[in-house]
Design a protein around this nucleic acid. Structure first.
Length: 643
RNA sequence: GCUGCUAUGGCUCAGUAGGUAGAGCGUCGCCUUGGUAAGGCGGAGGUCACGGGUUCAAAUCCCGUUAGCAGCUCCA
């Protein structure tokens, strides 16, 4: 029997072997670290017996599949601990997730933090007991009986809902048995570096009509040091939470008077306008023009676009002179009307029309979250009208534009292609053409991507950009959508070379997505330490005492004239105190002026990056800062934030 | 929207068993005029989110509303 390994090496075996044995034949170390295997493309247990020639890939914690098996086993260990401590608890489901695992339980009281600690202790005990996990399968009737005997009604329901031909498997460790497809580790022994992180409510099977269960979240790693690094990262994330920093740095405010409608304060407004300035600059270079369409438009328009049918529950409406109007949740219908203001020739295409559009969407109260999820926000939208032949090159152009934006901020990113959802409009042919257009552009540019089946917009497929911030979290921001439905519904036309009327194809696209949300992401990405070009205040001038107020004013006037955003702290405080405060405000440059500086006609510079830099000519400081602003240097601080 | 938790001066938070409020920071005033992460003293500032109820008495107990937090669901 021939087993082909992931690096192409072929191993010969006389008899059927388990995945674990294959791992051991490679090395003891691999066997020790193995969590699961992939046999002919299917995820399998280490216990799985390979009987014929096969391709086998051994997965450790470093592989997604291995990590899932590891954490799934951790969730079983947690369930076992809970059944030991609180036997009346009913088990629901417990999978692994991105950063760890959870398990849902049905219990009278929610779990308290003290109980979490008890559970954690019991889990560590179970690990020490080194219980072997055994897999077994049962026919449906016996499976149901087993779970009925163990008084697990949720498991009985799950089994009843399994398809006729499903294999019903269980995993057993010590006295604990759980319905589970696997895979799982061989023993509880390695589940040591664990932490239960939180308790929350969650509906049985995710349906809000069902009973609310208690969900315990936890995480597990192979090494204590990795667990600690993760917990430190979580702490760091909490420290740079944009809601906290937004308040501290006086960027924006969220008030009870406007739930989900953020107020931008003067400093936040500088940030926003600076981003928009940049946006306008690069779009002008890329051949875009800019328009602005109204916030309130007639209901009929939204019926034409299809938005009313699909999203009326999330749209704000109003009545003007007895006519129904809607507050726009998207800019595209307005963009359609702009296109129709004129006749278009094929020579005019592609037409790239940008719009910073303020949209409103009625989000459920529980969905609101700082600037990340709001009820009104600005989209950095653009609609590109083009011919079929132009699809690939236009998509490529947008991809490279978005790429340059993310690079500027130091974001890594990956791309997902989302295909036709169930609830959608348009013909199969149109969808195929559009989906292929996106795919071709990605492939022509050699851009790796994953496919997200059925996650497209109702009017077309899309490419989504998921960017990764400085502490490893991902955010979906940019998107490129190809749309053949809106031009049809709005009867857009252009005159082709032969004089016939043709339908243009359109792209909807955003780089930032929501500007508000992008600002939220930037706050967390930079931990409030914005690069100089973005900093609301770029220099703070601190006179040593009131005697040097005039000199400080002179210095700050020169900075101001040089186009640098400057503030001067004239309070009668000690210099150490003023520095401390300016640092907490994350200001990139601090200028200290006192007797020595005035005498030498220089300034003492302190930069956020290098600390104290000594006495220096103001002219040199200005040049350096101007250069940083001009080139938009964006050095990301991944270290621990101030305070 | 659902479940749970929370709401006290501008900010961060104390307030134990119901007896009409405290601290630190900030702010203001005075002293200090100080060279790289908090100088000292003093003052002002709160109908304890809002509306009901229980009680001789409610920041504290109960009900409702609003907003926030965590999670679920949703996110064109």
């Amino acid at each position: 029997m021939k087993i082909t390994l992931k690096d192409g090496v072929v191993k010969e075996f006389d008899n059927a072997v388990s995945v674990y044995d294959i791992a051991r034949s490679i090395s003891e170390g691999l066997a020790r670290n193995a969590c699961a295997g992939i046999v002919n493309g299917e995820t399998k247990d280490l216990r799985f017996i390979v009987e014929n020639d096969a391709e086998v890939n051994i997965c450790t914690f470093d592989d997604e599949v291995g990590k899932e098996a590891f954490r799934h086993t951790a969730s079983h260990v947690m369930a076992q601990a809970i059944k030991r401590l609180y036997p009346e608890t009913k088990l629901a489901i417990g999978p692994s997730i991105a950063d760890g695992f959870y398990y849902d339980f049905d219990r009278e009281k929610p779990f308290s933090p003290e109980e979490l600690e008890e559970i954690e202790k019991e889990m560590k005990k179970i690990a020490k007991e080194d219980l072997a996990l055994e897999r077994f399968e049962l026919p449906r009737a016996e499976a149901i009986k087993l779970m009925e005997d163990r008084q697990e009604p949720y498991k009985v329901e799950l089994i009843n809902d399994l398809p006729e031909d499903a294999v019903i498997s269980f995993y057993e460790q010590g006295e604990f048995i759980d319905l589970c497809a696997g895979p799982h580790l061989l023993s509880t022994k390695v589940i040591k570096a664990i932490k239960l992180t939180s308790v929350a409510g969650a509906y049985w099977r995710g349906n809000e009509k069902n009973k609310m269960l208690s969900r315990i979240y936890g995480t597990a790693y192979t090494k204590t040091s990795d667990l600690e690094a993760y917990l430190t990262m979580m702490e760091e994330a909490k420290k740079r939470d944009h809601r906290k920093l937004g308040k501290e740095l006086k960027l924006f405010a969220l008030l009870e008077e406007g739930p989900g409608f953020p107020f931008f304060l003067p400093k936040g407004m500088v940030l926003k306008n600076t981003l928009l300035e940049y946006w306008r600059e690069i779009h002008k270079e890329a051949g875009y023009v800019e328009v602005s369409t109204p916030i309130i438009l007639s209901k009929e328009l939204w019926e034409t676009s299809g938005h009313w049918d699909h999203y009326k529950d999330n749209m704000y409406t109003t009545v003007i002179d007895e006519h129904d109007f809607c507050v726009k949740p998207m800019n595209c219908p307005g963009g359609m009307l702009v296109y129709k203001q004129d006749m278009h020739s094929y020579r005019d295409l592609p037409m790239r029309v940008g719009e910073i559009g303020l949209v409103h969407r009625h989000e459920k109260s529980g969905a609101l979250h700082g600037l990340m999820r709001v009820r009104c926000f600005n989209q950095d939208d653009a609609h590109i009208f083009m011919t079929e032949e132009q699809i690939t090159s236009e998509i490529s152009g947008v991809i490279s534009l978005i790429d340059s934006v993310y690079k500027l901020f130091g974001f890594k990113y990956h791309i997902e292609l989302s295909t036709r959802p169930e609830d959608s409009m348009g013909s199969d042919e149109a969808w195929e053409l559009a989906t292929n257009g996106l795919r071709d552009a990605l492939e022509e540019n050699n851009i790796p991507y994953t496919v997200n089946e059925g996650d497209g917009a109702f009017y077309g497929p899309k490419i989504d950009f998921h960017l990764e911030d400085s502490i490893g979290r991902t955010w979906q921001c940019g998107t490129i959508q190809l749309d053949m439905q809106m031009p049809e519904r709005f009867e857009l036309e252009y005159t082709a070379a032969n004089g016939s009327k043709k339908r243009p194809i359109m792209i909807h696209r955003v780089c930032f997505g929501s500007i508000e949300r992008f600002i939220g992401i930037l706050i967390e990405h930079y931990a409030g330490q914005f690069p100089t070009w973005l900093s609301p205040v770029q220099v703070k001038v601190l006179p040593i005492s009131e005697k040097f107020a005039d000199y400080a004013n002179k210095v700050s006037d020169e900075l101001d004239k040089a186009g640098i955003r400057v503030e001067t702290d004239h309070r009668a405080e000690k210099i150490g105190y003023k520095i401390r405060e300016a640092r907490n405000e994350r200001i990139p440059y601090i200028i200290v002026v006192g007797e020595k500086d005035e005498a030498a006609n220089k300034v003492s510079l302190r930069s956020r990056a290098n600390g104290e830099e000594g006495q220096i000519d103001l002219k040199d400081v200005i040049e350096r800062i101007q250069q940083e602003i001009k080139t938009r240097v964006s050095n990301v601080n991944t270290g621990v934030s101030v305070e």
